[in-house]
């Protein structure tokens, strides 16, 4: 696209982004912030290179992969579960309104000597983490229904319908047992289904609701687990489950992947607190306390703030 700067159209307004910020006008201030946003959203060479690599990889396996109708299925699934979304929203709001302390899981392991109490237990798993992870799973693309061929469509619809049934049982019906039954039916009908990743997340959600956390972790940690949508919520939840199971090495790896993104959100808060727990559990008190202080700096009113303060106070009293 050519720039309007050079075309000299009569009546063409002057761009705010072209104005000197020093004019001191409201338009100048707005132009300055727009200009900086414009510069920040200019793709860099590495952005383009990463995209090219992804498209090239996609091109390479295009002929054999079911990805095209996988996208269509994801869209169909979202549409099919649309009625459940409202219920999920209500569920999330209800879980969020519960006191933070009630979401904290009792310590799964004996307390290590000399280390603060609270963070040494299993890192808390806020109740909303599971639905959040599962809801984040379907990734529909726009305009893709055209990608479904005539013979693929009935299969796609059946697969989406089966999985939608599981999500409905889980969200609208709040019946994790029925959801697991629906997922078993899905697995039997589509052992290599295009939505296997989404089905896996739904199963994890159902298992978590039922308190079958070890099975949930096994699913998330399976090396041959195939494609599981790795959102931040899923990753931090897996880290928490690893920590709860005493596998702090794996837990810290997940937490550090979350923290490496540099974002400031719920997943980052949980990862920071979880890493503190693992470090303290491993005897690295200085690093653990550092994480707790960082957590309090970044999330002074966070769900784990009281536990972090208590742990730091204990550490202070126990110091020689």
């Amino acid at each position: 696209m050519k720039s309007a700067r050079a075309d000299g159209n009569v009546g063409e307004p002057e761009r705010w982004t072209a104005r000197a910020a020093s004019r001191g006008t409201a338009e100048g201030a707005a132009g300055a912030v727009l200009r900086r946003a414009r510069d920040a959203t200019e793709p860099r060479q590495e952005d383009v290179a990463r995209l090219e690599a992804r498209l090239a990889a996609h091109q390479a396996d295009d002929s054999s992969s079911p990805w095209r109708w996988r996208l269509a299925l994801a869209l169909a699934l979202l549409l099919a579960t649309g009625g459940a979304v409202g219920a999920a929203g209500k569920l999330l709001r209800r879980t969020r309104s519960a006191p933070a302390a009630s979401a904290v899981i009792p310590a799964a392991e004996p307390r290590a000597s000399g280390a603060p109490a609270s963070p040494l237990g299993a890192p808390a798993l806020p109740a909303e983490s599971v639905p959040a992870a599962a809801l984040a799973a379907p990734q529909p693309a726009a305009v893709v229904p055209r990608a479904v061929g005539p013979r693929e469509a009935p299969r796609a619809a059946t697969e989406a319908r089966l999985l939608a049934g599981a999500f409905r049982a889980l969200r609208a019906g709040q019946d994790p047992v029925a959801a697991l039954s629906a997922l078993d039916r899905y697995d039997r009908a589509f052992p290599r289904g295009a939505l296997a990743g989404e089905a896996r997340i739904a199963r994890v959600e159902a298992l978590m609701v039922l308190g079958r956390r070890a099975e949930a972790l096994a699913l998330l940690a399976a090396p041959d687990g195939g494609e599981t949508p790795a959102t931040r919520n899923v990753l931090v939840m897996r880290g928490e489950l690893f920590a709860e199971a005493g596998q702090c090495g794996s837990a810290v790896r997940d937490f550090e992947r979350i923290l490496a993104a540099g974002a400031r959100d719920d997943a980052e808060a949980r990862a920071l607190f979880g890493r503190a727990a693992c470090r303290l559990r491993g005897g690295d008190a200085a690093a653990g306390e550092g994480d707790l202080r960082r957590y309090l700096e970044r999330h002074p009113d966070g769900a784990f703030a009281a536990a972090a303060r208590e742990a730091l106070n204990e550490a202070l009293h126990e110091a020689p």
Binding site: L92, L135, A263, D265
Partner: peptide, 15 residues
């Protein structure tokens, strides 16, 4: 749904 949008994932170059 309070799932956030995976902040920092896109839109802003990291370099």
């Amino acid at each position: 749904l309070s799932l956030s949008g995976e902040p920092g994932a896109a839109g802003i170059s990291t370099s």
